[in-house]
Write a protein that binds this DNA or RNA. Sequence first.
DNA 1: GCAAAAGTGTTGTGACTACACCCATGG
DNA 2: CCATGGGTGTAGTCACAACACTTTTGC
Lengths: 228, 228
Amino acid sequence: MEPAGLERPILAVDVVVFSVSRGRLRVLLHRRGQDPFSGAPALPGVAVQVDETLEDAARRALAVKAGWPPDAPEDLYVEQLATFDGLYRDPRGRTVSVAYLGLSPARSAPVRKLFWELADGLGRGSLPFDHDRILETALARLRGKLRYTNIAGQFLPEAFRIDELQKVYEAVLHRSLNRTNFRNKLLKLGLIEQVRALSEAVGKKGGRPPHLYAFAREEVEAADRDFL
Amino acid sequence: MEPAGLERPILAVDVVVFSVSRGRLRVLLHRRGQDPFSGAPALPGVAVQVDETLEDAARRALAVKAGWPPDAPEDLYVEQLATFDGLYRDPRGRTVSVAYLGLSPARSAPVRKLFWELADGLGRGSLPFDHDRILETALARLRGKLRYTNIAGQFLPEAFRIDELQKVYEAVLHRSLNRTNFRNKLLKLGLIEQVRALSEAVGKKGGRPPHLYAFAREEVEAADRDFL
DNA sequence: GCAAAAGTGTTGTGACTACACCCATGG
DNA sequence: CCATGGGTGTAGTCACAACACTTTTGC
């Protein structure tokens, strides 16, 4: 019934990796090496091969296209975002792209260089294909999940100070939060718990030494808020 | 391993259409006509063609596989759910499937026959491929969106009584809700608004005639609840 | 009048906001 | 001892669950 041959859409993946450093939300982009849009910054992406999962393809895109360290992708947090269709145009033919959302803690300098500051311009007509829309969707998902999951832990080391966590939230949501209530809310929700007092006050100029906290072990989807 | 030639995954769509009738949540299934799993009930799905969008493919699957009326798919609400990978095995080779979630109001008898009651067994080892997991994901999405969007309107006609709406919520969430508070909450959220008093009391045996309500026009994503 | 269903009001509880205040450290 | 942050307490407001009560119909 169906026409045989190569009359099928090409399946690809694109990856949006966010990171927070120096109080700013940043996104991983690479400069395209081939046409179309050669030289333009874009989300890393590859065509999916028959013998790899979508998530594997996403990690491969980071290594092959963006120069991510070959060992590092393994422990990077990634989740599927959505599948994009229609706007895509490519000389190779019709392409459907499964987008992935990745979150990375601040890392070594060579990796940090891959990230671009998420300024107001980015994501509004500045990226090729439909990457603007993918980026927009990724940011919306990230902001949504901050509210009711422990996903922000992916931006930080195992143990962290509450003020570090608050900076992450403020960078992602792009507005300032009340210090006291931020603290109380996350603690009462059971999202984070105190680990131990900070012994090493690294390069502080004063002030009471903070405690260290960690996100609760389980992948908290924070108790589906009841509807009535 | 894989036959040479088509060294790319096959792209397919599967559709989960829910409906509520007689106080029960139901899902559209069809009996497969070909191997594998010939004769077993399954979600309707087709391979995506180069010249159609994913959503078009999803609507085509309903018409071709499930016998959905050819004119009706146009106004059926559908949204993309997620893309499934890995578990899928098919003689034609590696397949990646983009799942769609559809919501249908109660309709004519021939269409109603396509729906299966969502009993406790369904979705737990009873469907072929990874359709159990797709169904589970669809239900979770539907329940989530009930809480903060006007999506439930897709199950009902333009104007409806509040008790009808409550039955929809109860069927989907699978628990009973407090009549008074259900009413107050949806009204205060601004999700629904009164249209006019009901003139025709169709076959009622008594009681005060209800008002008619409608969902607020816009696709209310109900004001992103602020985080602090 | 009485049952039945729709619609309204009331009260207690708990969450969130916006503060003021106390604590522990470096210089 | 004071500047600098970390940590705790509190009062007002608002949303919400539970439930009693009133309204409007059919019979």
